[in-house]
């Protein structure tokens, strides 16, 4: 089976965010940018499926030429090849424009499965996977925390409020995966070395058959009008124990709410 995984290079979320006040956009320093950790789950999922069923993992990204580093990382993990959509005219693309560009490439690949993260760890729009499914006319199974492929069927488990939902669809299909789907592997040095020799296919707008007006800032349907930094305020919460250990539950509940455990 052939799996396309969409990935994105994002500024390292552990480093302080820098915003350009004029454009309201993140300052993207290639040295401090990484493969979006959220995408590693998709890559890992694809690798495991291919290890089980055979086939090929193709990572697809849109971004500046420096985004090749993020694709190398995905290939170091084990992806077979990469496609990077890069063109000056793509700068300033919104979610719809991004989805159009990705769809153009993925359509040409004819994959059995497209895997996306739920959302990117920089702008958090979370809209690209849905748009992509629509543009490709694929069934979409979102928020998967478990996935299995059998013959031409894909089955996912997803958590909904108080229950687990099991969805099934015919291939080809599009999935979005959560962080609980699989622990992403750390690329072995062998993998890193091998990734240097794996191909990255660079595509520009012309080769995708897209018109300049459909993508980039020109084709964007949305505009970022403001971007304000959240002032970090530390709020303490006191939990008093009445001597019976009741505080333990309260603390665990709090930790669960902030998703630490």
């Amino acid at each position: 089976m052939k799996i396309c995984v969409t990935v994105k290079q994002v500024p390292d979320p552990n480093l302080p965010m820098q915003v350009d006040p004029a454009t309201h956009r993140l300052v993207r320093n290639p040295d401090q940018s990484i493969l979006d950790p959220a995408d590693e789950y998709g890559v890992e999922t694809a690798l495991r499926l291919v290890e089980e069923h055979g086939g090929e993992v193709v990572v697809v990204s849109m971004g500046p030429p420096s985004a090749a580093d993020a694709l190398r990382r995905a290939m170091a993990m084990g992806a077979d090849r990469a496609i990077l959509i890069t063109d000056e005219a793509l700068a300033g693309s919104d979610a719809r424009a991004t989805a159009r560009a990705l769809a153009a490439v993925i359509r040409g690949e004819q994959p059995d499965l497209v895997i996306c993260a739920i959302e990117a760890t920089d702008a958090y729009t979370g809209m690209v996977p849905g748009m992509l499914a629509e543009l490709l006319d694929l069934p979409q199974l979102t928020f998967a925390r478990q996935v299995a492929v059998e013959g031409q069927t894909v089955t996912v488990h997803r958590d909904i409020e108080g229950a687990t939902q099991v969805l099934r669809a015919q291939l080809p299909a599009l999935l979005t995966v959560t962080a609980s789907i699989a622990e992403p592997r750390y690329p072995s040095f062998k993998g890193v070395m091998a990734a240097k020799r794996k191909p990255i296919d660079e595509r520009d707008l012309a080769s995708l058959g897209l018109e300049a007006g459909a993508v980039g800032a020109a084709g964007a349907a949305e505009r970022v009008v403001a971007l304000e930094e959240v002032r970090e305020e530390k709020q303490g919460q006191m939990v008093t124990d009445d001597g019976t250990g009741s505080s333990v539950e309260a603390i665990v509940a709090f930790l669960e709410r902030i998703q630490v455990v």
């Binding site: 622990e183 592997r185 750390y186 690329p187 072995s188 040095f189 062998k190």
Partner: peptide, 16 residues
Amino acid sequence: VLEQGEFPEEVTSVFT
């Protein structure tokens, strides 16, 4: 680590 990419899971975050 270098050839197999195998090590205790906790170490992944140390490396990254």
